[in-house]
């Protein structure tokens, strides 16, 4: 049991579901931005799990961790989107199947 009578198992289940959904999006979508979105979702799923444990264990450290994750996600989004903008200018597409310059 965790805060407000919510069982930790439920929190983890929800988190796991979100994570798998995000995973599916990241693997099956072809649009780079959609993949990026799916990754953000996976990150949030992890956040949820962390907060669930934090509440269950009466620990504030979990909130700190999530706080940092969100801040880093912001930095990551800024840089990642800038890369996409630059990439799109260069290749006129954000379909990852067509962006495969980094190969032998």
């Amino acid at each position: 049991m965790t805060a407000n009578g919510i069982p930790i198992g439920d929190v983890l289940l929800a988190s796991g579901a979100l994570f798998v959904i995000g995973l599916a999006g990241a693997l099956l979508r072809r649009n780079a931005i959609s993949i990026f979105l799916a990754i953000e979702l996976m990150m949030n799923a992890a956040n949820l799990a962390v907060l669930g444990y934090a509440a269950a264990l009466h620990s504030l450290e979990g909130q700190i961790v999530v706080f940092f994750v969100i801040a880093i996600a912001a930095a990551e989004a800024a840089v990642g989107l800038a890369i996409f903008v630059a990439l799109f200018r260069h290749t006129e597409t954000i379909d990852v199947n067509q962006i495969n310059l980094l190969k032998w």
Binding site: L23, A26, L27, R30, I35, N97, I99, N100, L102, K103
Partner: peptide, 17 residues
């Protein structure tokens, strides 16, 4: 080994998974 490097990010992600 270079044939493994396809340059396609989804292949890498799949391998990772």
């Amino acid at each position: 080994l270079r044939f493994l490097q396809t340059g396609n990010v989804r292949n890498y992600a799949l391998t990772f998974l």
